[in-house]
Design a protein around this nucleic acid. Structure first.
Length: 154
DNA sequence: GCCAACGTTGGC
DNA sequence: GCCAACGTTGGC
């Protein structure tokens, strides 16, 4: 089992939205590295850190879980979608998505600053490759952030 | 809202 | 296949 971190702008979709919905499809990923993680490496049950970007407070807001393995992202085929990609086709989906389900929302967001400052977490792509919107997380990194989140003192 | 970093595109 | 131009991301 691998661990992951997904970024989302809460103005578009927050951990509270996921709690309300129960589960959702993670559409709109248009980066090859992120796509490959989803398409090739994600399995049902993999734990996911749900990160809020471009907002205040900035940080990990809760936990989700992969609930369906990769399948074609249909928004790439929809000319009306902001995620439309003219190079995608029914026989060449090009882009993929997974489903994720809600697990828990932290009482308080674990701030990016705290993650940067925490011993052992500074090597996360979150810290030094911030533009990668879907990224792997080491089990011990996941556990450390989970502890900070449940502690609520973030 | 700005802008640095960086991934992608396309002309050559 | 290089690389300049361009567009997007995301922290600030």
């Amino acid at each position: 089992m691998r661990h992951w971190l997904f970024k989302s702008e809460p103005d578009s979709y927050s951990i509270q939205d996921l709690r309300r919905d129960g589960s959702t499809f993670w559409d709109g990923v248009r980066n090859y590295q992120a796509r490959n993680f989803m398409r090739d490496d994600m399995r049902v049950g993999d734990p996911v850190l749900f990160y809020h970007s471009n907002t205040e407070p900035l940080g990990v807001a809760g936990i989700a879980r992969v609930s369906r393995e990769a399948y074609p992202d249909h928004t790439a085929l929809d000319p009306a979608s902001p995620y439309f990609d003219p190079k995608a086709g029914p026989d060449d989906p090009r882009w993929y998505m997974v489903d994720v389900e809600f697990v828990e929302a932290f009482p308080r967001v674990v701030p990016l600053d705290a993650i940067r400052a925490a011993p052992g977490l500074a090597r996360m792509p979150l810290v030094n490759k911030s533009r990668l919107s879907v990224q792997p997380v080491a089990p011990e990194e996941f556990d450390a952030i989970l502890a900070l989140g449940r502690d609520g003192t973030g």
